[in-house]
Computed example of a mutant assay.
Amino acid sequence: MILAIDVGNTNIVLGCFDDKQILFRERISTNQLATDLEYMTLFSTALKLHSLSEENISGAIISSVVPSVTNTLKQAITKLAGVTAMVVGPGVKTGLSIMIDNPATLGADLAVDAAAAISEYKAPMIIIDMGTATTMSVVDKNKNYIGGVIMTGMAVSSDALTSRTSQLPRIAFETPKKIIGTNTVDCMKSGIMFSTASALDGMIERMEEELGEKCTVIATGGLAPLIIPLCKRDITLDEDLLLKGLMVIYNKNKKD
Results as ranks from 00 to 15, higher is better:
159 D>R: 13
138 V>W: 02
168 L>M: 14
191 G>K: 12
135 T>F: 00
147 G>S: 03
193 M>F: 10
155 A>C: 02
143 K>S: 14
109 D>S: 11
137 S>L: 01
102 N>E: 04
123 A>G: 08
102 N>T: 07
184 T>N: 02
139 V>W: 08
128 I>T: 05
125 M>K: 12
153 G>L: 02
150 I>L: 09
119 S>A: 15
197 A>E: 01
117 A>V: 12
116 A>L: 07
88 V>A: 07
76 A>D: 10
77 I>K: 12
119 S>R: 15
85 A>K: 11
122 K>C: 02
107 G>E: 03
144 N>S: 11
123 A>Q: 10
187 C>N: 15
169 P>K: 10
172 A>H: 13
122 K>E: 12
101 D>A: 13
191 G>N: 09
145 Y>F: 15
111 A>C: 13
106 L>S: 05
108 A>T: 12
79 K>A: 11
186 D>L: 02
120 E>V: 06
107 G>W: 10
94 T>C: 02
143 K>I: 01
85 A>D: 03
79 K>R: 14
128 I>F: 09
179 I>L: 15
141 K>N: 09
169 P>D: 05
156 V>R: 11
120 E>L: 12
163 S>R: 15
93 K>P: 00
98 I>G: 01
98 I>D: 02
111 A>G: 14
118 I>A: 10
153 G>A: 05
144 N>R: 13
155 A>L: 12
112 V>F: 06
196 T>H: 11
176 P>M: 11
126 I>Q: 11
174 E>R: 14
194 F>M: 07
165 T>W: 03
90 P>N: 13
130 M>T: 05
84 T>E: 15
85 A>R: 11
151 M>P: 00
83 V>N: 06
83 V>H: 06
165 T>F: 02
181 G>N: 08
101 D>R: 14
143 K>F: 04
162 T>P: 00
194 F>A: 03
128 I>M: 01
88 V>L: 05
89 G>P: 08
79 K>Y: 09
125 M>T: 07
171 I>S: 06
81 A>N: 04
153 G>N: 03
132 T>H: 07
198 S>G: 11
156 V>A: 13
101 D>I: 00
150 I>H: 08
93 K>G: 01
180 I>D: 00
107 G>S: 09
131 G>N: 04
92 V>G: 07
170 R>F: 00
180 I>N: 06
91 G>C: 02
100 I>N: 04
196 T>K: 06
152 T>K: 09
145 Y>C: 04
88 V>M: 05
151 M>G: 03
160 A>K: 06
164 R>Y: 03
76 A>G: 08
129 D>Y: 05
98 I>F: 03
194 F>L: 12
165 T>A: 04
100 I>P: 02
88 V>E: 02
136 M>I: 12
148 G>E: 01
110 L>C: 12
176 P>F: 10
165 T>M: 01
128 I>G: 07
130 M>G: 06
188 M>E: 04
177 K>Q: 13
127 I>S: 01
141 K>R: 15
191 G>Q: 10
174 E>V: 14
179 I>S: 09
143 K>W: 00
144 N>C: 08
80 L>W: 11
79 K>G: 11
87 V>T: 14
121 Y>D: 02
159 D>S: 14
126 I>N: 06
180 I>V: 15
168 L>F: 05
116 A>R: 10
124 P>E: 00
198 S>A: 15
109 D>F: 09
152 T>E: 05
142 N>V: 00
92 V>Y: 08
